[in-house]
Amino acid sequence: DGLACVFAGLVGGPPVTTYSEVTGAVSLTKVTSPAVIRIAAVTGIVFSVFGKISALLKSIPASVLGGIMLLLFGTIASLGMSNLIQNKVDLSNTRNMIIVSLILTFGIGGAAFEWGNFSMSGIGLAALLGVILNLILPTKESKA
């Protein structure tokens, strides 16, 4: 992934990244074969080059795509929660609960931050919020 980002920058391409959708799709299908991932990548490239195939994909009703997205993004959120549980994050701790709830609310709820020409929303904003909250919220409860 890192080499792909470097190469894209060297040839003047846009920034590239992996997307959490892939993690969700792999989790749903349980297909982890690199060959299948390569075939999916080549298929995606072919679909984007040929307009007739793109038109066919655009004919899929929005409600069908919406249902797929609900399942996919719900799976991504579930994977995140599963990761917290597997790593034994104490969700009875108020600090941890605040961080997790705000990340989920900002990420899923479509919150956006804008300042002048700068804007951030979605997963990026949720991740940044999580890092900031993790740094600024006290780790030990103060005794008053």
Rank of each mutant, 00 (worst) to 15 (best):
D1E: 08
L3F: 01
A4I: 07
A4E: 10
V6K: 04
F7N: 03
A8F: 00
G9V: 05
V11C: 13
V11E: 11
G13C: 06
T17V: 09
T17K: 02
T18N: 01
T18A: 00
E21M: 09
V22T: 06
T23A: 14
T23L: 11
G24L: 08
G24K: 07
A25C: 02
L28K: 12
L28W: 03
K30G: 12
V31C: 12
V31E: 09
T32Y: 12
S33L: 13
P34E: 04
A35P: 01
A35H: 01
V36S: 08
R38K: 15
A41P: 13
T43I: 07
S48H: 04
S48Q: 02
S48T: 12
V49S: 03
K52L: 03
K52I: 00
K52T: 03
L56G: 01
L56K: 10
L57C: 06
L57D: 04
K58R: 13
S59W: 13
P61W: 07
P61M: 13
A62S: 04
S63T: 09
V64P: 08
V64F: 14
V64Y: 11
L65F: 15
G67T: 07
I68T: 05
M69Q: 13
L70S: 13
L72H: 15
G74K: 10
L79I: 12
G80I: 04
G80C: 12
S82L: 11
I85M: 02
I85H: 00
Q86S: 13
N87R: 00
K88P: 01
K88R: 04
K88Y: 03
D90H: 02
S92N: 03
T94V: 08
M97F: 10
M97G: 08
I99E: 07
I99P: 05
I99K: 13
V100A: 00
S101Q: 03
I103T: 09
I103R: 14
I103D: 02
T105S: 06
F106W: 06
F106I: 15
I108L: 15
I108M: 14
G109T: 08
G109V: 03
G109I: 12
A112C: 15
F113V: 06
W115A: 00
G116S: 02
N117M: 09
F118M: 07
F118T: 08
S119E: 05
M120F: 01
M120A: 13
M120Y: 00
S121H: 08
I123Q: 05
L125K: 09
A126H: 03
A126C: 06
A126R: 03
A127E: 01
L128N: 08
L129T: 15
L129S: 10
N134D: 04
N134F: 03
I136Q: 02
L137E: 07
T139Y: 01
S142L: 08
K143D: 13
A144E: 15
A144I: 14
